[in-house]
Amino acid sequence: MDLLLWRHAEAVEGTPDHLRELTERGRKQARKVARWLDDNRPKRLRVMASPTVRTRQTVSAFTDDFEIITALAPEHGVSDILAATGWPEGRGAVLVVGHQPTLGRLAALLLSGQEAPWSVKKGALWWFTNRVRNDETQTVLRTVITPDMI
């Protein structure tokens, strides 16, 4: 299974949190990563987004074919994302468009075995895959892309 974690691009400050929109810079960040994803996307990609405006705007730069998943909202945690995606037993690939600090905590869990307050930059994409080697399930970090790298 492939699991792609995409943090929403830069958004305006303010309240209510769920209604915050992307800034002009955020829209550019989203378009850059979307172009990279379009060129490098895995086959059979299921796309999920948090119900917030900023995540829906970020993912819309890539596709209009996505699911809004309440379990990806900012108030939910790592276990909610894992349950929603089916990681690691699932098949194919899932793209999650979500939020800090949850995406950073999930990245830490996948690579180190425990949650930690890792930082995922605004607009960044982390791509994980899992494999079995010598009867051991391993998580592999395939790539990390930030908008300023593209």
Rank of each mutant, 00 (worst) to 15 (best):
G98W: 05
W87K: 03
P51G: 10
A84Q: 10
E75L: 06
E115I: 12
F62S: 00
M48R: 01
T129K: 13
T129R: 14
W118R: 10
G77K: 08
W127E: 02
W126N: 05
A83M: 05
K122L: 09
T143C: 14
Q57R: 07
R142K: 15
G113H: 09
G113C: 04
H76N: 13
H76Y: 14
T137K: 13
A83W: 06
I68G: 08
E115C: 13
A71F: 02
L103H: 12
E89Y: 06
S79N: 14
F66G: 00
L95M: 02
V96I: 09
E115V: 09
P147Q: 04
A93M: 12
D135W: 12
T52S: 10
A84M: 01
N130I: 06
G104Y: 00
Q100C: 03
L110A: 07
D80T: 07
K121V: 06
A49G: 05
G86Q: 10
P74N: 00
S50H: 03
R105P: 09
L109E: 10
T85R: 01
L103E: 14
A49Q: 05
D135G: 08
T52L: 03
T137E: 11
G77W: 02
T137D: 06
S60F: 01
P51V: 07
A71D: 05
T63N: 09
D65A: 15
V140A: 13
P51R: 02
S50I: 00
V97D: 08
F128V: 07
A107H: 01
G113D: 02
S112D: 13
N130T: 15
L110N: 08
L106C: 03
A107Y: 01
G77T: 03
N134G: 10
V94D: 01
A84N: 15
I145H: 05
G104A: 12
A83V: 03
W118M: 12
T58Q: 00
M48I: 11
A49P: 09
L82T: 08
A73M: 05
P101R: 08
L45P: 04
T137G: 11
P117F: 05
T63D: 10
P101A: 14
S50A: 11
Q100G: 06
N134S: 12
G113T: 04
S50K: 02
V132P: 09
L111F: 09
V140Q: 15
T143Y: 06
I69T: 15
V59K: 04
S79Y: 13
P117L: 02
G98A: 06
L109T: 09
W118K: 06
R46C: 09
G123N: 08
I69K: 07
T55A: 10
L45N: 11
A73T: 01
P147V: 08
P147R: 07
T139N: 13
S119V: 15
T137L: 13
